[in-house]
């Protein structure tokens, strides 16, 4: 099954509750009542095809965008969506998780400092990772889309790109499997769910980049042929 613009937005959410995260990234408001996808998109001037494409890729692991899907992408909105996602991961989810990790670290005498600096270092890496995209890849895309020349090349940018999921999985292992049992068990269970939710979302974010962003930039670099 695939989503279509004539479905009600609530039907999409019933199938994949994670899609609620799409709304703030597109400045779409809650309180959409019984409206269909196309109606909700029009209210916020969001390109309907891009919104549906993202919802489909986000939900169906085997969804492969067609050539038409890629060619009809609105790059400005795609970039807006990706930057808003970055902001959400960095300034909302990671900050939230940090507060809880900090509580745990404060009561884990011996390793508290190291745990905290592990987390801070991870945050820095994620910030750097996003910054690379925002300062090179996205401007590159926007220039090409406008028909201007760009000093960057997709291939070079991708080589600087590194994995940001390993450490998140290390963190869950440390928190659940290796910290001594007596340290804040409830806090640890809570933060475990938060981290797993974030890591699921980061994986989808990577899929969006791989299936939508990169093919689109490739197509632009090839002179839209």
């Amino acid at each position: 099954m695939r989503f279509t613009e004539k479905q009600k937005l609530e039907e999409l959410l019933a199938i994949n509750p994670q899609l609620i995260l799409m709304l703030p990234r597109f400045d779409m408001k809650l309180g959409f009542g019984e409206k269909r996808v196309d109606e909700v998109c029009r209210l916020s001037n969001v390109p309907i095809s891009l919104f549906l494409l993202l919802c489909n890729v986000y939900t169906y692991d085997d969804y492969e965008p067609s050539e038409e899907d890629i060619k009809s992408i609105n790059g400005k909105w795609l970039v807006k969506y990706l930057i808003a996602s970055h902001d959400f991961y960095l300034n909302h989810r990671l900050k939230h998780i940090e507060k809880h990790v900090e509580k745990i670290a404060n009561s884990a005498e011996k390793v508290g400092n190291v745990l905290m600096s592990f987390f801070k270092k991870y945050e820095d890496e994620v910030a750097k990772h996003f910054m690379t995209e925002e300062s090179s890849l996205f401007p590159h895309l926007l220039k090409l889309e406008e028909g201007e020349s760009s000093k960057y090349k997709l291939q070079d940018i991708l080589e600087m790109h590194d994995n940001i999921e390993d450490q998140l999985s290390d963190l869950t292992n440390i928190i659940i499997k290796y910290l001594p049992p007596e340290i804040m068990p409830n806090e640890r269970i809570g933060v475990w769910f938060d981290i797993i939710q974030l890591s699921k979302d980061l994986i989808k974010h990577a899929v969006v980049e791989e299936k939508i962003l990169i093919p689109y930039v490739n197509w632009l670099e090839g002179g839209k042929k």
Partner: peptide, 13 residues
Amino acid sequence: IKSISGLTIYALL
């Protein structure tokens, strides 16, 4: 655990 910093915490613990 994959990262060096993660392994360091494991060794400490």
